[in-house]
Design a protein around this nucleic acid. Sequence first.
DNA 1: ACCACGATGCTTTTT
DNA 2: GCATCGTGGT
Length: 709
Amino acid sequence: MDFNIDFLETLNPEQYQAVTTTEGPLLVLSGAGTGKTRVLTTRVAYILANGLAHPWQVLAVTFTNKAAKEMQERLTQMVGAAAGDVWLGTFHRIGLRILRRYGDLVNLNKNFIVLDADDQERLLKNIMKECLVDTKEYPPADLLEIIQHWKDKGLAPDAITEAEKSNFCEGRALDFYRLYQKRLHEMNAVDFGDLLMLPLLLFQTHPEILAEYQHRFQYILVDEYQDTNIAQYMLLRLLAKGSNNICCVGDDDQSIYSWRGANVDNLLNFEKVFPGAQIIRLETNYRSTEHILACASSLIANNTGRLGKTLHVANQDEMGGELVVVQGYYNGQEEATEIIQKIEDENHAGIPLSKMAVLVRLSFLTREFEDALIKANLPYRIIGGFKFYEREEIRDVVAYLRLVVNQNDDLAFMRVVNKPRRGIGDKVVESLQQTANARHISLFEAINYAEIKPAPLKTLQAFREMILDAKKQTSTLRPVVVAKNLMQVSGYIAMWQAEKSLKSDERIDNIYELLNKLEDFASLDAFIEEVSLQTENDEQTTGDQLVVMTLHASKGLEFDKVFLPAWEEEIFPHQRAIDEVGEAGLEEERRLAYVGITRARKSVFISYASNRRVYGQWKNALPSRFVEELPPEHIDRRGNRRMGYGAQFSDIRMPWAAEKQTPKKRVGKRVHHETFGDGVVLREEGDRLEVFFDNSGLKKVLARFLEEI
DNA sequence: ACCACGATGCTTTTT
DNA sequence: GCATCGTGGT
């Protein structure tokens, strides 16, 4: 293989070791900005160049689709077309690939579909309703989370032990899980968790298949190992039993997905699980300045139970640099406006927008920045907010296509059968469902048997023919043409065109954007599969844009200048993280702060606001405790913009603050309301009061609209 | 079957 | 403050 190994010379000694120690288990502890992607990529290239394995005998797993794509590109640069034969992708994609091949051994039909979060929740809601559960009291989303956690551990319903059981809905979660799996099976569908759990089940029940993959994968590489869950760990352990050549790269200080089932112990126990493992530490940081690293290190030092690493700057040029700025603001809006102003100034001074980023803890915080960006007329992209593939119109179009591919896809059927309105209401769908249940057939097939009045029946038959017609077209026409036809014939596009609003125009644009993507696909199946795995916003760097995203979404990225707003108690660290898992939650929040700071090459701008609107209500806020954990000599602390540094937050007297100071006991008091007149307070729940007004009767009103009389 | 309106709850973080 | 859901009227 023609392969230029010159770039081995540009590696530092530790990186070189990590690349060339190919045999046996290896753990690479790789701090932020120490070149781990480079190591991983070069390692694969090294293995291929030395003929240690064929490309298809190398398995490289990444955490996100984006990371996989980036690695694929870099690898192609180094080894050319051979890069395409390496098994490279997210765990979920690899799992899918295995199931497409051997799914029949775990009761799957070859062309199964992958449900997204929305489908899953809808399905669970249906199941719960059938079981006469009040979905208000027991939210399907909570059940989904429970089931996902089971799947994260690789636990099928029969494997749930007493200790794993949940007391959700009087302990019925397991029953629902069983039903849910049964329903998935009937629909020939899997969810995200199944993409890990079912391959695991396959390997456990079919040793000969496991042996085949153990033999196949001579070298296994894993990125972001600190964020793998138990199912992923078990898969890796099984696969690595073949060659024993497994290399995991990770950083315990960047473990930020425990809420999703990630388990840092995978990394901490690496030596125990893989005897004879070697460990290499990458501690030379090529990304950030001294001040930035000092802040990150000082902050993370407050965590316990770390493996411990000391990052140092790579070159002397990076010594010094700008101090990390900590700025206080009056409120969230001022904060957003001023930060965008700064970004605009930097942009005028020559820094491209794409080299800067605003990273927030909670996705709703992106909103104020979006407003400010629109006012400033700067091009931007929000990541972590509403995602392209989660938009209504996109999901509708995909549902149509899913139905063309698989008429038994009941969820897709229900989504589009009356969209646009065709006069098919709840009653008709209910009747279809009954027939379908009784005969064990899909809703689509039930059209032929259900007792339905002539008018809707005619509509349903026409709908049926339309889908079957599109299916017929797939054998002669290109997928993109079939899809465009269907969107016209079904009246779906016309539905939005008729609406004529700003939003509907945008929706139509989105639909065409989606349909154009179809150009690149040979079949509808392939397209749907791509879409169902593409949950994360792919990099569509259309020109020079500023990104505003969540801290979670920023993992693995880097920017010259990073802005970290809303460093306030209850937001960051997030109150719920602390409430739910206490000290462990706080430490994960701190790692998130560490991830945020270490995204920056040249400068970090941290800020907090004294007042913030949450749920449309003003709340005052204290600076995050993390601010106090930064080393004073490395920061430029500017305090609050309007009050000057040192002002006591409790000194702030704002109109809305007055309401907080009124005594809590208001029950029994006579009050006056501008619209409802005089009355007496009966009950009190936080800010909401139940008042019996003399002339208007019983009303629920907000305390701030009341005056005591 | 569909629409208008009001009550409700929501904001962690994502493959 | 907003989007979603459920209700009751047409």
